[in-house]
Write a protein that binds this DNA or RNA. Structure first.
Lengths: 125, 125
DNA sequence: CTTGACCTTGGAGCGTAGTCCAGTGTTTAG
DNA sequence: CTAAACACTGGACTACGCTCCAAGGTCAAG
């Protein structure tokens, strides 16, 4: 698959895909004419990248995870360990969200906002 | 409270606080000598900012929420509505995380990685 | 009065994640 | 054969979120 098709299929711009390649997030072989040629699985991989990204993982982290996956001895055990690790990160983030949610629900119904700073009732002079 | 104390109490650098002020995230009045003077609630507000931020809200969004809170007619109802809104955003993010988590757990125990792109088994020539 | 801690501003610089060219080559359709 | 559609590279530019000066003002202690 060439870059245009991958872009169309993933809703990612060509430039972004080239950028992802530069930072090691995707890898494609090259055709004899120099054009990139991506494997079909790249579509799913990019979808995963997008998801992970919106969850706050940096491209560097995502790339690292991808590499770990590719470099891992391909025993199911090693892979499972990596997934477990990512799940823990996800769980931690969910816990944080739950905390924020609780903070918010606590204040629903009270007249007490999260108090932004700076009231102006005692002038500085 | 002057900037140094606020920085110490929140674990935020002075520069960051000044930056936050520039972008409207915190507001302090000024003492006659030009020094910033922050209300005590700013400590909590900054803690909230940090939390919201790690959850993927941009500073602009957080600032906007803060303003909405300050500008809202201070009826408990209006505030509650705002909180409900934020809770929905939080819930949506949690749902996304749950999806990713499910994707991950699905693959634990299988030998199937998320397939990074680029195998090299059929040369381009 | 000086020293040192603290404050001010403005501006430069940095990492992340793109986005947008310009200039050029390749492939495909008419 | 030519034009359009697609691809390539390199480099400039952007927005966000800081971080780090430099040059100077303020204030309390010695």
């Amino acid at each position: 698959m060439r870059i245009g098709e991958l872009a169309a299929r993933t809703g990612t711009s060509r430039d972004t895909i080239r950028f992802y390649e530069r930072v090691g997030l995707v890898e494609g072989r090259r055709l004899s004419n120099g054009y990139r040629d991506f494997a079909p699985e790249t579509v799913e991989w990019l979808a995963y990248v997008r998801t992970a990204q919106t969850l706050g993982f940096t491209l560097a982290e995502i790339a690292r995870h991808g590499e770990e996956l590719r470099e891992a001895p391909d025993s199911a055990d090693a892979l499972s360990a990596l997934f477990e690790q990512k799940i823990q990160i996800v769980d931690a983030r969910m816990a944080e969200l739950a905390t924020l949610r609780a903070e918010l629900t606590d204040r629903v119904g009270t007249g007490c906002p999260l108090r932004a700073a700076g009231r102006r009732d005692a002038p500085a002079s």
